[in-house]
Simulated scan of single mutants.
Amino acid sequence: MRGGWRALSRHVSHPADEAADDRTFPALSVLDLVPVRGDQTSGDAIAATLALARTADRLGYRRYWLAEHHNMPAVAATNPPVLVALVAGATERIRVGSGGVMLPNHAPLVVAEQFALLEAAHPGRIDLGLGRAPGTDPVTRYALRHGAGGVDDDAVNRFPEYVDNIVAMMDTAGVGLDVGGRVHELRATPRATSRPPVWLLGSSDYSARLAAAKGLPYVFAHHFSGQGTAEALALYRDQFRPSPELAEPRTFLTVNAAVAETAGEAERLALPQLHAMVALRTGGPLRPQLLVEEAEAVSLPPEHQGLLDAMRRRWVIGDPETAAAEVARLAATYRVDEVMVHPVAGAYDEEPVRRSRSRENSLSLLAGAVHAGARARA
């Protein structure tokens, strides 16, 4: 049903996201895909994510975002709202959000209801990141969107409209839906007192232009693409129009990271994720994430080794001081006050299946080195 939305209030009531501060080092955040190793069940992987989130919370990371991917043997992040609820309930301070909900897969009202309820349960701690990519293969995409998102192309083409609808429906005053000349009141949750900020996510200039036009915060998927980041951020900043949501452009950087006590150890820990990305980019078989020993035993053809090396150069891999310096360099290069790290460190054989020790250690070592560097510069 297509109708006209009418705002029932011009007041925008949601907790303002953290403004950029005057620190000389970036704030740190986490992106989690809930990786599943070959020795783990889905339940094990979720338990490891909750332990990782508690680590990030304790260390002072700013936010913790969960991705949306479907029908992948190495990724358990299939349902961001469910994971956001689990992580928010297991932590105390950190902001928790979606990185992101792939909107064409879902009915906008359902997304609005989910995140309005999460915000009601955890006021001031919820982010709603929205993307328009499928997050899966064509067959699974069909299964996801059949009866939920309309015709496939229509759901993608209506992405800007769906974004507007979600923003309107989560308003604390509700929204009016004009159907047949009558305005019907609609609320995502009965008595909201705040709503989560909406971020647009993307790996091309499409979302950069849309976020700028709508005056919304924006994140480019640097951790996935690694190319076009500067151009997308410049486009967003240059074309940004202030809105009731946001007075100035707001963005941060995402990056894959593996940090260990030594550079050599960090290189070993990054290898399972590098092999997984090579398989994804070359059409190879997708499987649960390899253990470090398994990844070291893989022999890649020369052309694939070149791809692995090229990806590795865009990642933050090293000892704490080197990794912290690289994070600071990236923040300065792209003019951001926040860097969201996707911790990609793998696991060794016989490690506890309900923990990701190397991922937790990456967060701890990086945060320690960044804070030590800040104190040294103070």
Rank of each mutant, 00 (worst) to 15 (best):
V82G: 01
A310N: 08
V183H: 02
A85M: 00
L233R: 07
G97C: 07
A47T: 14
D154E: 15
D319C: 06
H275I: 14
L33I: 13
V198I: 14
T251F: 03
L117M: 11
G43F: 09
N157L: 14
E293L: 04
T140I: 13
V139P: 00
A297D: 08
A116E: 01
F224Q: 09
D22P: 00
A19R: 13
A378Q: 13
R287I: 09
T172C: 11
A45C: 04
E267F: 01
D57L: 06
R145V: 15
G181N: 08
A295R: 02
P73Q: 05
F25Q: 07
H11T: 14
L128N: 01
R132M: 10
T41C: 09
R250F: 00
L52G: 04
L253I: 09
R54Q: 15
A266C: 01
P80T: 08
R250N: 07
D32F: 07
V84W: 04
P302T: 09
R314G: 15
R62C: 00
T333V: 12
Q114I: 05
Q289P: 00
E338W: 04
E326M: 04
V110L: 10
Q239S: 11
P81T: 05
L50N: 13
T322S: 13
M311L: 15
T41S: 15
A51R: 14
Y236G: 04
G38S: 08
Q289E: 11
A266L: 03
P242Y: 14
V219M: 08
L235E: 07
L109E: 06
V36S: 06
R355N: 06
R359C: 06
A367R: 14
L128G: 01
E231V: 06
G60F: 10
Y236Q: 02
R145C: 11
E265Q: 14
V82R: 02
A7S: 12
R355Y: 08
H371E: 15
A324C: 02
H304A: 12
A328Y: 01
A88L: 05
W315C: 07
R355V: 13
L52P: 00
G129Y: 09
A148W: 08
V339I: 06
A367F: 01
R241K: 14
G97F: 07
S13Q: 11
S362C: 10
G129T: 09
I317E: 09
R54N: 05
T282K: 07
L103W: 12
Q40I: 06
L31F: 13
G89C: 08
P343W: 11
V198K: 05
S42L: 14
P138T: 11
L28N: 01
R63A: 14
D32Y: 03
P73F: 12
A230Y: 02
Y162I: 00
Q273N: 14
A168W: 02
L130S: 01
I46Q: 06
V75S: 12
A88R: 04
G174M: 05
Q114N: 05
L246R: 05
G100C: 09
S225E: 11
R62S: 12
L330T: 09
R191I: 08
A310E: 15
L86P: 00
F115K: 01
G226V: 08
V219P: 00
